[in-house]
Nucleic acid binder design. Structure first.
Length: 195
DNA sequence: ACCCCGATCTCCT
DNA sequence: GGAGATCGGGGTT
């Protein structure tokens, strides 16, 4: 089992994001092969939680790369990001979708609405739910084998597509979303409203 | 105290 | 495949 390096996760989120495709996130008895991600570029990116500076909520993004940034949304869901900023600058890659390659028996009961394998983690909050990730995992070191959630390297997909990020109303011109072209487990696209 | 934000589910077509 | 309902928390005033 290959583990990513801290250096390999340090840099411009736009460069790190596609390299995470094909990697595996392991938690809660489930292994998820990442098939869709989005880059969030800190102070340069109005859609990033870190755009307006450091707060208690987003502090993890200023920490070392390779840690998990977990945020709560819609009053009932969590989404997870891999921190990747260089020199204490905030940056992160949102993990949007994955294929469950191991531990389906754990994932299904956590994803009551999932009818088929590809529904288990074809969205950021679904991914978090399938792996039972939540508040407690915020700040976890993905490179520490003792961590409750770890990352493994996997083969980068042969074909990668890019496009606008999902559901955000700013910076829509930037193709900062990356996905494995032929994966059936990518999320459904929505353009953000407003503004 | 207020306003803004967003992912998923359940129907329905 | 699409539309509408659902909810709690973060940040700022």
């Amino acid at each position: 089992m290959n583990r990513p390096t801290r250096a390999g996760l340090t840099g411009d989120p736009l460069e790190i994001a596609p390299t995470l495709l094909g990697d595996e996130l392991v938690a809660g008895g489930v292994t998820a092969r990442i098939v869709e991600v989005e880059a969030y570029c800190g102070p340069d990116d109005p859609a990033s939680h870190s755009y307006r500076g450091k707060t208690k909520r987003n502090a993890v993004m200023w920490g070392p790369p390779g840690h998990l940034y977990v945020y709560f949304t819609y009053g009932m869901h969590f989404c997870v990001n891999v921190v990747c900023g260089r020199d204490g600058r905030p940056g992160a890659v949102l993990l949007r979708a994955a294929e469950i390659v191991d531990g389906r028996d754990f994932a299904y009961p956590r994803r009551r609405a999932a009818k088929r394998d590809r529904d288990l983690a074809n969205g950021p909050a679904k991914l978090a739910a399938a792996l039972a990730l939540g508040r407690d995992h915020n700040g976890a070191d993905l490179l520490d084998p003792k961590s409750p959630v770890v990352l493994r390297t996997g083969a980068t997909p042969a074909r990668i597509s890019t496009g606008p990020r999902v559901g955000i109303a700013v910076a829509q011109d930037f193709p900062w979303r990356y996905w494995e072209t032929e994966s059936s487990a990518v999320s459904t696209f929505r353009l953000g409203g407003r503004r």
